[in-house]
Amino acid sequence: MTMIFGIPVQAFMGQLLVGLINGSFYAMLSLGLAIIFGMLRIINFAHGAQYMLGAFVGYLLLTHFGIGYWPALILAPLIVGITGMIIERLALSRLYDLDHLYGLLFTFGLALVIEGVFRYYYGVSGQAYTPPPALTGAVNLGFMFLPVYRGWAVIASLVVCLGTWLLIEKTKLGSYLRAATENPTLVQAFGVNVPLLLTLTYGIGAALAGLAGIMAAPVYQVSPLMGSNLIIIVFAVVVVGGMGSILGAIVTGYLLGLAEGLTKVFYPEASNIVIFVIMAIVLLVRPAGLFGKDA
């Protein structure tokens, strides 16, 4: 059997793939966090809960209405995004003039409530979500078997991340967003509806979390607690990358996912904490984060 650093190729590649999958979700989630933070100056603690919500919407659509994966891929982010916009209008918009920490505390409370409600109805055990037939099975790449769904998840998340980046960097809406981040008062004076822009931004951020959720549903089990532990890791990712750059958030997400996968190969005991360790090192060496402009 072929070996890499004394590890069978199959196992090595398998863990690397797991790392890449995790990294895809880190990237999508930290991207959403960075977009929301850039505009609203709020750290969205409910991001993990919205990710869980996306997965659950997909699961409920399938079990109660027989609506499958492909429609759910559109519907779940849409539903999560719209609920996000309602929350932004009703509550978050009242917090913009306050210390940023209140936004964190509010969304933390929101996350507790959302998770509590789902725990009340569905318990803590996970529910399986079967991917559509087209995405099941595995292909032989010669050096390893690649489950089709995992390959799809990695490619789809790459497309989503790049698409979002293009939306922000290259479109008119994106330029409004970036301008409003720099100077909201001036942009408003030019006749752009900034409050609407803020609502839209939170909606996009929440929808990204929801999309990550429905994409994650077949990979991990759908459970009320799937988001809460993930969000803390994503926070660490965001600290490492720095939230100043959208592309930085994406790249850091994938890199840290891979780092985690590699740690699973060489020193499994530390795989839970490797991202936090990297965060600590980055804080010592480069406190502003790898791509950070803001100290």
Binding site: R94, Y102, F108, G109, A111, G116
Partner: peptide, 14 residues
């Protein structure tokens, strides 16, 4: 409990 504590959180902040 988290439903109740989370709600108190949101009310306090708002």
């Amino acid at each position: 409990v988290t439903i109740v504590t989370g709600t108190i959180f949101m009310i306090c902040v708002l």
